[in-house]
Nucleic acid binder design. Sequence first.
DNA 1: GGCGGTTCTTGATCTGTATCAACCGGCAAA
DNA 2: TTTGCCGGTTGATACAGATCAAGAACCGCC
Lengths: 237, 237
Amino acid sequence: MRISLVAGDPNGQPCADCAICRFSICAALDKAELRELEHLGRHIHFASCETVFGQDEMTTSVYNLLEGVMRLYKLLPDGRRQIVGFALPGDLLGMAASARHSFSADAIGAVAVCRFSKTSFARFIEDKPHLLRRINELTIRELSQAQDHMVLLGRRSAEEKVATFLLGWRDRLVQLRGPSNTVPLPMSRQDIADFLGLTIETVSRTFTKLERDRVIGIQPGSVCLLDPARAEAMAAA
Amino acid sequence: MRISLVAGDPNGQPCADCAICRFSICAALDKAELRELEHLGRHIHFASCETVFGQDEMTTSVYNLLEGVMRLYKLLPDGRRQIVGFALPGDLLGMAASARHSFSADAIGAVAVCRFSKTSFARFIEDKPHLLRRINELTIRELSQAQDHMVLLGRRSAEEKVATFLLGWRDRLVQLRGPSNTVPLPMSRQDIADFLGLTIETVSRTFTKLERDRVIGIQPGSVCLLDPARAEAMAAA
DNA sequence: GGCGGTTCTTGATCTGTATCAACCGGCAAA
DNA sequence: TTTGCCGGTTGATACAGATCAAGAACCGCC
């Protein structure tokens, strides 16, 4: 799951000052509740590629991403990997339906999260219908995104997949950091491939093709959307 | 969304007697609440292939499937279709995050649903944390299934897809109607293809291959799992 | 029971993407 | 500065599954 919510650092700034608050579930909380939540979470940092939680591990905690990017993925027994999503600041992770996580989550670059014990978090939300409704709404939104991604994986060509990914990723970043046609890509080509159901070579070739067609400019660690309209057209059809 | 819940027919049997109740959200409701819910819903019948609601239509209602099977799908502008799921009795449909449905839903064979107006349903669940928690839990479960399906669409071969589909579908039917190795397939080959991200020809060929290998027996409208163990092995790898 | 339409199956061929393999460029350790 | 490594790109080839085309089976209807 990837839901916006935030909690304070008992040793740092209070929740209300959290940079993430404006994207978060916090909107559904009043000052007193925010202060209560503050005391429930602990900030933790992860280095690049460290695993925050792994598929099939017990779900003991819920995490709120404060800083950085994470990849969420499932592995098949033979090692094939499908990335089910990338998490950005404000996303809530680890709300599993069962006792074990159904996917793994690890850091792409340095990451800061706020960790809550599952039980204390559950107790906190237990009797707050406004919060439950908000969490529910965000879960439904995420489900809807998952369905969109199914369409992409099942029915779109490599070029459509890449164009759709770039636009979608840009839009999420625009939400957080404001408009820009330069799209940072902190994840590797392999990550992109495993997200889009392609191989790394196909992703690379498609990037090159889009660059040749003057739709994007490729820079180390990012891509520039030179012709967003044409990219939209590729993604739509 | 596909969530288990049930409501009574004002002109028929009360909710508590509904055949679906045991699979449903009802577990979270007491007698009085069940009776209240009863008065909110209306039973409606649909013939085969009729549309219950369409992509981009306004979300005015929430539906609880009582009887029959439905296909839930998204269409691309050029007509490509991805089925995002099949609904069975007990599933709740139409809880969209936005004001419009993000997918279409239509009947496979005759269908009976219980329809609630969105607003009265929202009012009903509004201040019932136990119900909200249950709905939330079921939404999360559905999200998890969607992620499993992403793995299937992005990373599995045709044979793995078909084997996984047959086993998953059987398991859902076993939940509802008890154990059996005969798996009714009310949906067409085209539906299966659009669910698995394949063409109808590939689905047909894969069925034939599984039959040649004595893994399944093909019957009109159903399939018999002759060697479930081998099917599991295909699906797992 | 025969007819027309639809769905399903099968066959032949094509193609988009995977696979295999080599190479390039940047960066860090020696 | 050289060396090795890693991530990314590019090229050659293979193949799974798509596409195109033709039957075969089934089903409702007269």
